Amino acid sequence: MAVAKKSTNWFVVGVSTAVVVVLVAIGAAVWWANSLATGPGTAPQSAIVNQETGAITFGTGDDEVDTYVDFMCPICGTFETQYGEQLQTAAANDAITLNIHPVSILDRYSQNTKYSTRAASAMYCVAAEAPDAALTFFNSLFANQPEENSVGLSDDELASLADQAGAGAAADCIADGTYKNFVASQTTSHDIKGTPTVEVNGKRLDLNAGEITKLEDVLAKAGAATTGTEGDDSAK
Rank of each mutant, 00 (worst) to 15 (best):
S104N: 11
Y115G: 02
L153Y: 03
A167Y: 01
M72T: 00
A4G: 03
E148A: 07
D62P: 01
F137Y: 15
S234C: 02
A92G: 06
S116L: 04
T38P: 13
K236G: 04
T113I: 10
K114F: 11
A171M: 09
T178E: 11
E80Y: 10
V103H: 00
E157N: 08
G202Y: 12
K6R: 08
G202V: 10
I174T: 06
D63T: 07
A220K: 12
N201Y: 05
A37H: 09
E216S: 13
N208H: 12
E148L: 10
N112S: 11
A175W: 02
K193R: 13
A47F: 01
V69R: 05
S116V: 03
I192W: 08
F79L: 11
G210F: 11
Q45Y: 09
Y115P: 14
K114S: 10
G231F: 11
P131R: 07
A47Q: 13
G223A: 12
T67Y: 00
Y179R: 12
A184K: 03
T17Q: 15
N9Y: 08
G59I: 10
A143T: 10
L98Y: 13
I26W: 11
D107P: 02
Q186R: 15
L158Q: 05
A134D: 04
A91I: 04
S7Q: 10
L106A: 10
V126D: 02
A92Q: 13
G210H: 09
V198L: 13
N112A: 08
G228D: 06
A2Y: 06
I56V: 13
A2V: 12
G27S: 02
A159D: 00
N139V: 02
W31Y: 14
Y179F: 15
V21I: 11
L205A: 05
L219S: 04
A92H: 00
L219W: 11
C73F: 04
D155Q: 14
A171E: 15
A224Q: 15
G152V: 03
N181Y: 03
Q186N: 14
E85D: 14
S189N: 14
V24T: 07
E148V: 09
E147S: 13
V198I: 15
K236A: 06
V126F: 06
Q111F: 08
L106G: 01
I56Q: 00
V20I: 05
Q51P: 07
A225R: 06
D176G: 03
I48F: 12
V69S: 03
G61I: 02
